[in-house]
């Protein structure tokens, strides 16, 4: 089997396991390249159907083009879309000037928790990858979150032979990670092969492009002339900087992501 075929087959297997075994299920869609690939894989796994809703945690600080793209795709594909904002925190003045990690926690982690509990999700499908960042490299494919959404990362259960964690107490939920084995270049090569519609913020304009998408206030662009899929793939094969180097919250602390994710961040 070819590399991309194998990744695709394994991700579809994981999506189908989640659908069969996890009761109420939702998929996080951040509008970025990874979760858009997940959207595509869902259509493949279920033969043109999306048997669960898609969730967007809107911090109201996203790059405006992301929101326009989100609404366009959701309509075209007929997606059931849940958009949720932690409005209370915003009304109380939460923002990156209060500390980036505090802001991420309030507007992303806490907002996500509110959605999980409001809808009673047993499973949340998330597009994180091992190669993105250290704490994600230690993740399981089916990763349990406790009643308070905490990740007990130092005591993860064994996961072997595609037998995933499908037994857990009521009130806990499972984060399902179908893209864990993919790397950044795999994602782009798959987008090229499948001709997946992707938001144009990733393509260079005037010598700059986004490599990772997030809130406008905390996401930087990189210097780049890559304005096509081929050029992006070529650029990534030679770059020496990290994918999330433009994400300012990651730079706040050496273990920023571990700390955020322990509390329930995606």
């Amino acid at each position: 089997m070819e590399h991309l075929d194998k990744l695709e087959a394994d991700s579809i297997y994981i999506l189908r396991e989640a659908y069969k075994k996890l009761g109420k299920l939702g998929m996080l869609w951040s509008i970025g390249k990874d979760s858009t690939v997940l959207l595509w894989l869902t259509q493949k796994a279920f033969y043109g159907h999306s048997p669960f809703p898609f969730i967007h945690v809107d911090t109201k600080r996203k790059i405006p083009a992301m929101i326009a793209y989100r609404d366009k795709i959701a309509q075209e594909w007929g997606l059931e879309l849940i958009v949720h904002t932690n409005q209370k925190a915003i009304d109380e003045g939460m923002g990156p000037e209060k500390g980036r990690l505090a802001c991420c926690k309030a507007l992303k982690t806490d907002a996500l928790k509110e959605v999980v509990h409001a809808y009673g999700f047993d499973g949340l499908i998330v597009g994180v990858r091992r190669d993105e960042e250290g704490s994600r490299s230690k993740e399981r494919v089916f990763s349990e979150r406790q009643a308070d959404d905490a990740w007990d990362y130092a005591n993860q259960p064994p996961e072997l032979w595609n037998q995933f964690k499908t037994d857990f107490p009521k009130g806990h939920h499972i984060r399902v990670h179908p893209l864990l084995a993919w790397n950044e270049i795999d994602i782009w090569e798959y987008i090229r092969r499948e001709n997946i519609p992707i938001i144009d913020l990733y393509f260079a304009k005037n010598g700059k492009r986004y490599r990772s998408l997030g809130c406008a206030c905390c996401t930087g662009q990189i210097d780049s002339t890559a304005d096509t899929l081929d050029k992006i793939i070529e650029e990534l094969k030679h770059t020496k900087t990290g994918e999330r180097a433009g994400r300012k919250q990651d730079q706040e602390d050496s273990y920023a992501m571990q700390k955020l994710r322990k509390e329930g961040y995606m």
Partner: peptide, 16 residues
């Protein structure tokens, strides 16, 4: 990658 792993100089969980 875990803070505990670096502080204690041991591997706690598997990495790929």
């Amino acid at each position: 990658a875990f803070e505990e792993e670096q502080q204690q100089g041991i591997t706690i969980d598997t990495t790929q």
